[in-house]
Computed example of a mutant assay.
Amino acid sequence: MSVAPPPIIRSVAELRALTATWHRAGERIGLVPTMGALHAGHLSLVAAAKAAADRVVVTIFVNPRQFNDPEDYARYPRTEASDAEKLAPFGVDAVYVPAPDQVYPDGFATTVSVAGVTEGLCGASRPGHFDGVATVVAKLFLQSGADIAFFGEKDYQQLQLVKRLARDLDIPIEVAGHPTVREADGLALSSRNAQLSTSARQMAPALYAALVGAAGRIRAGDAVPGVLDDTARRITAAGYQRVEYLELRSAQGLHPMIRLDQPARLLVAAWLDGVRLIDNIAVGP
């Protein structure tokens, strides 16, 4: 027997009225912010939210402020109906799909900017992107009044931004990271994977394989700069057009590292078939 999709809410007022009712009942509210085009990675966040909270709200909002390219924003898939169907088996309590004017009303003039963790990596090649992320996440946290929010570790720099944002602004919400979900061949799940050609999709897992190899060498004591240079060449030899960045950074604070003397993260962005793919893995001392 099919399960009915969860109710869709489109206004701030309706969302706040609903979450206020839940809070009055003493219920804990979980939030899963997304831009839609849901895949198994998103759904793993929903499952984690269901396990940690009494009520769960999934948000779907394609945020124009975090796109550097208007064409990329226009191309981004909008799949509201199929997303709601995917959420139905999880017993989600509401899907918040605000119109742009519910997030950025006329005269909106505020930008939230987080320094430090946004510098370099994706922040270097996507100017303004993380300001857009920080602004919309702050809005969603405050609009929902949620107690805990779930973000995937695939977007590790974004996860660190969100944790710092909540801490610095005293927003009373717990930010929980969730491990990256991968295909059987290791490719990190992403809505952008669908843009890869058949041949590029076959090449794509080389990115994760290269990270695993590099992490093993770094743990074994090989010099970090040499490992990174060798790994970048390995990625392009596997068919990627360009490695945008490949860096070892501290797990907390994302400070650049040239030796493994604290918990770290190996992070990469590379271009394949005109598609920008990112990934990261943990590297510990």
Rank of each mutant, 00 (worst) to 15 (best):
Y73R: 13
S250C: 03
G120C: 13
V227I: 08
L38R: 00
I173M: 09
V95D: 02
P6E: 00
I8H: 06
A223L: 15
L169M: 14
G177R: 00
V112H: 11
E14I: 12
A215T: 02
Y156P: 14
A99T: 14
R219L: 11
D230C: 07
R265E: 03
N193Y: 03
R65Q: 14
F61V: 14
N280L: 11
Q143C: 15
F108W: 14
A251Y: 06
L189R: 06
A223K: 11
A251S: 08
L161W: 04
R75Q: 06
S125A: 14
E174P: 05
M257Y: 01
P100Y: 11
I281A: 07
N193F: 01
G216Q: 09
G123V: 13
R167K: 11
T231W: 01
Y156F: 13
A109M: 13
Y240Q: 05
P64T: 02
S44Q: 13
S191V: 00
D261W: 09
T180H: 04
Y156E: 14
R75L: 03
G30L: 01
V133I: 12
A134M: 14
S191T: 07
G30S: 04
L187G: 02
L15Y: 06
F151Y: 11
D261P: 09
P5S: 02
T180I: 07
A238K: 09
A166I: 12
G221H: 06
A146F: 11
D101M: 10
Q143S: 06
P127W: 08
Y76K: 02
N193P: 05
P70S: 03
L196D: 02
T118Y: 09
L277R: 07
I9G: 05
Q241E: 08
A17H: 14
Y156H: 15
E14G: 14
G36C: 07
D72I: 04
E80S: 14
T34H: 05
L254T: 09
V58H: 04
A20H: 01
A25C: 09
Q66T: 07
Y96T: 00
P263Q: 00
N193E: 12
K163A: 05
P179F: 12
M203I: 12
A220N: 09
T79H: 02
D147E: 01
Q102N: 10
G107R: 12
E85T: 07
V62E: 02
K86T: 10
R217T: 08
A84M: 02
F67S: 09
S197G: 02
T236L: 11
A232T: 12
R28D: 07
V97T: 10
K86F: 04
K86D: 01
I218N: 01
I29S: 10
S125F: 15
I60K: 00
Y156S: 11
I281M: 02
A237Q: 10
L15D: 05
A47V: 07
V32A: 10
L267R: 05
A188L: 06
T118A: 01
L87I: 01
A25Q: 13
A47I: 13
A53K: 07
D106F: 03
P7W: 15
